[in-house]
């Protein structure tokens, strides 16, 4: 029984991180139809910037904020100068975002070196509770809380604000949003950069969880986030939340009971979802 509690917490914490990556990816995909391969590099930039700022100031919060600000700025740069040139052209998007991913991942190696940088957890989150044999790591609880806060925040933003309305409308009919007099390109930039900031945050939170950051962590997490998007349903915010939790829990379960089958389990889940519900578990199925 105890192991299930531990696994559930591990899974939810993992799911929270995945959610930060996948939610941005999913909305970018839904609104702009862009398969964004820069998400992985934004993730590691978030991690490295966090380590750098944490090393300078010793402040956890400043580190997280710094990671988000840098990733947001990178997102604006990517969208304004590159991605916006190739809307509607999927292969070109894949290549251009991948090119940026290769360049910026290599830049990480130039700046911080190719060897992994290790980083501890901040002291106030470093501990663990021991409740009658069940070890609950503070940092994982913290991740779950952050995930929840961000999820609620995005939910409110999408459903209670005009920006959210326009984004939801744009996911379905970008041409009609334009025809109503709204400059949707501004929202494209905003959403892209917002997604980037969340990816940066995910990277910053990931580094203390695993205790280090490497330049290869980006692609791996990006592929996982893509799987979440497919499983949850493209462009669906609820889908990326549900899919992240599902994949996180499954991941921690598989890692315990059948390590080595992790990727196969994830992809297997995706194949099953695609076979029976191609629009994803929470797919909107409105977008043509």
């Amino acid at each position: 029984m105890d192991i299930f509690v531990t696994l559930a917490i591990n899974g939810l914490a993992q799911g929270a991180l995945l959610f930060l990556l996948a939610s941005g990816l999913s909305i970018i995909l839904g609104l702009m139809g862009v398969v964004n391969f820069t998400h992985g590099t934004l993730f590691i930039w978030g991690g490295y910037v966090y380590i750098w700022i944490f090393g300078l100031t010793g402040s956890f919060v400043l580190g997280l904020l710094g990671a988000m600000v840098v990733a947001f700025a990178m997102g604006v740069f990517f969208e304004k100068f590159f991605v916006s040139r190739v809307y509607g052209n999927v292969p070109a998007q894949i290549l251009i975002t991948l090119g940026l991913q290769v360049i910026f991942t290599e830049l990480v190696r130039v700046i911080w070196g190719a060897t992994p940088l290790s980083i501890g957890r901040p002291t106030f989150l470093a501990g663990a509770w021991d409740i009658s044999g069940v070890v609950i790591v503070h940092y994982r609880i913290f991740l779950i809380a952050i995930g929840l806060v961000i999820a609620v925040g995005i939910h409110l933003l999408l459903n209670k604000t005009k920006i959210g309305m326009i984004v939801r409308a744009g996911v379905q009919r970008p041409d009609m949003v334009r025809a109503l007099g709204i400059n949707i390109n501004t929202y494209f930039t905003l959403v892209f950069a917002g997604g980037a900031a969340l990816a940066g945050l995910a990277g910053a939170l990931y580094a203390p969880l695993v205790g280090s950051m490497t330049s290869t962590a980006g692609m791996h997490n990006q592929v996982l986030a893509f799987i979440v998007v497919v499983v949850g349903g493209m462009g669906s915010f609820i889908g990326s939340a549900g899919g992240s939790v599902l994949l996180g829990l499954m991941g921690s379960g598989v890692a315990w009971f059948a390590p080595g089958l992790a990727t196969i389990a994830n992809v297997g889940l995706m194949a099953i979802v695609l076979a029976f519900k191609p629009s994803g578990l929470f797919g909107l199925a409105v977008k043509k």
Binding site: V230, M234, V267
Partner: peptide, 24 residues
């Protein structure tokens, strides 16, 4: 090829599915 009809959405779905299959 299950998701029929073409369009950007199915291109994207295909891209991501194949990405994951390659990873397996």
């Amino acid at each position: 090829f299950r998701s029929k009809g073409g369009g950007a959405a199915s291109v994207v779905a295909g891209a991501m599915t194949t990405l994951a299959l390659g990873e397996i």
